[in-house]
């Protein structure tokens, strides 16, 4: 839960500090990229709270590495 709260606080801060000026200056590309990244962040944070265990990228990389390099174990 802490994660989500912190992410939301940071996001609100970002919106005030960065996104609103971008909107006012009509820098649409930056604006949408920014908002998109924020949305991803919030979605990830919510998933982290909902999911019991996030899939761990290190595991995937490990499998790929073992596959490519043919490592034992």
């Amino acid at each position: 839960m802490t994660t989500l709260i912190m992410v939301i606080i940071i996001c609100v801060g970002m919106i005030i500090v960065d996104v609103i000026p971008l909107y006012k200056n009509q820098q649409w590309l930056s604006f949408f990229v920014y908002l998109g990244l924020l949305t991803v962040a919030i979605v990830v944070a919510i998933t982290m709270d909902v999911c019991f265990q996030m899939p761990c990228p290190a595991d995937w990389f490990k499998k790929i590495i073992i596959l490519i390099w043919g490592l034992e174990d």
Partner: peptide, 15 residues
């Protein structure tokens, strides 16, 4: 900031 935030989130479940 947004990239960094994603990074911080990834750090939480990277291992």
């Amino acid at each position: 900031l947004p990239v960094n935030l994603l990074c911080g989130l990834l750090a939480l479940f990277v291992y």
